[in-house]
């Protein structure tokens, strides 16, 4: 782990927490139907390993600060985000990657609710996944397109993709 990755990861974690607290202020952040705006940051994990670490820690901190279930949610939430973020890193900056957290969190949080409150498993999975999908396919999609368009501006490391316009310009010359 380099110092730079460490510092960037910390910023991702802080951003995740701030956005969770913001959605928490509107009473949207935890429970059966949850709209965590902060989940929209997950597309960063597609291109930046610092985001994989940072967002995982961010989930742990946010759950520790704001979730009523405290310790249990810190561990479970972090593991779920880590799984989703690693999957997204594998998939890369493609729209399909947005489905990873929907599936992982849906199943994971659904299982948590089924275990703790004996709520029916599949309906819980469905509701959690729905809330997650809404956030990811609005905000997440926005962030993904920002990364694709302005990735260099943000100094994002990641997979170099051929700049089509530059190549065609060269061809013209």
């Amino acid at each position: 782990m380099t110092t730079r990755l460490l510092a960037r990861g910390s910023v991702y974690a802080a951003a995740y927490v701030v956005l969770t607290l913001l959605s928490g202020a509107f009473g949207l952040a935890s429970g059966e139907v949850q709209f965590r705006i902060s989940e929209a940051l997950l597309p960063f994990a597609c291109v930046d390993p610092a985001a994989v670490v940072g967002l995982t820690l961010g989930t742990a901190i946010a759950n520790g600060l704001a979730s009523p279930m405290g310790l249990a949610d810190v561990v479970a939430g972090a593991l779920l985000t880590l799984t989703a973020a690693l999957l997204m890193w594998r998939i890369g900056p493609r729209v399909v990657a947005l489905a990873a957290p929907v599936v992982v969190n849906g199943l994971g949080v659904g299982a948590e609710l089924a275990l703790i409150l004996h709520l029916p498993f599949w309906p819980s999975v469905g509701l959690v996944a729905l809330g997650e999908a809404v956030v990811l396919f609005t905000g997440g999609l926005l962030v993904l397109s920002l990364i694709r368009r302005h990735g260099a501006l943000l100094g994002l490391p990641g997979r170099p993709r051929p700049d089509v316009r530059a190549i065609s310009r060269q061809d013209e010359r």
Binding site: M1, L6, A7, G9, S10, V11, A13, A14, A15, V17, V18, L21, V53, G54, L57, G58, A60, I61
Partner: peptide, 24 residues
């Protein structure tokens, strides 16, 4: 698992939270 570094990251993140709010 780099637990020390992860703990440092959490500490830095906690320090950054008010800064980011101010920034927003």
């Amino acid at each position: 698992v780099p637990t020390e570094e992860l703990a440092l990251m959490v500490t830095i993140a906690l320090r950054f939270i008010p800064t980011l709010m101010q920034e927003i």
